[in-house]
Simulated assay, not measured.
Amino acid sequence: MGLPVFLVEELPGGDSCRLDGPEGHHASVVQRLRVGEALILADGRGGTASALVTAVGKGTLDTRITTRSNVAAPDPTITVVQGIAKGDRGELAVATMTEVGVDAIVPWAAARSVARWKDERPLQRWRSTARESAKQARRAWLPPVRPGAKTAEVALLLGKASGAYVLHEAADVALSTVPLPPAGEIVLVVGPEGGVDDAELAAFTAAGAVPVRMGPTVMRTSTAGAAAVAALSVRLGRW
């Protein structure tokens, strides 16, 4: 079993680090780490450090850093524009995409999105989900969940991308064969339960996006993004 990962705002310059707050509580109370046990500290921006527990307090953990490493940011990056879904399907999409390696997520208020965000709480849940999934997957890079976007904003994002794609069941081109850029940002749009409507597809293709399909079947919005990121990861040599 791999070592547990705990996120810190900054890796310390010295040889010691105290975990407190939610991470300290989780380490000392939930996981019940003890003196001498090993763990990994990560700043979510590529920096990691192996450490040993030296003391356990009430909701705190003192550690001694033994080794450090830095993981370079991937290039090209993969950003998924995820249509807002009802219930917990959006959070499931965030969790699975984070586990398989997405680099950024943009919530999208699509025309066919059943759920509508009225405040910041759903966005905070997506961010919390991404954080916990990144820790579970032992990722050095924490994928940001950006503020929610409307269709016009998504079109602008696609227009600036090095490679822009829209998952669509009627597309003629397979994601497994479409040309990919060697560097920059790849942006992929995943529709909500009802899919991408004609007006949205027209706006995205006008911005330069290429409609692509995954295969002959139609996936749920909660799984399509993760499957697409996995396919791209193979093609980009990440896997």
Rank of each mutant, 00 (worst) to 15 (best):
D88E: 15
E185N: 13
A226S: 13
A115C: 05
R131G: 05
T205I: 10
D103I: 01
V71R: 11
R64Y: 00
E10I: 01
A170T: 14
T67P: 02
G101N: 08
K135S: 05
I84T: 00
G215T: 06
A164G: 09
A93K: 04
A206W: 01
S50G: 14
T60Q: 08
A202V: 12
A149D: 10
P192M: 08
G46D: 12
L123C: 01
T96E: 12
L19K: 10
C17R: 11
V178R: 07
G47V: 03
A230T: 13
P74I: 09
G46E: 12
G208H: 04
T67W: 01
A134E: 04
V114R: 04
E99L: 09
R34M: 07
S176R: 15
V229Q: 07
P147K: 02
G148E: 15
L11C: 11
D15F: 00
Q31L: 15
A134F: 07
R125H: 10
K150E: 15
T67N: 13
V81Q: 02
S162N: 10
R64G: 01
E200I: 08
G21D: 14
R112T: 09
L232Y: 04
L11R: 14
K135W: 06
A209Y: 05
L7K: 05
E10M: 06
G194L: 02
A202S: 13
V234L: 14
D62C: 02
A130Q: 06
A230F: 05
T60Y: 05
L19V: 05
L175M: 11
T48G: 02
I186F: 06
I65D: 13
T177E: 15
K160L: 09
S113Q: 04
R139L: 14
A93D: 07
V234I: 14
G14P: 10
V71P: 00
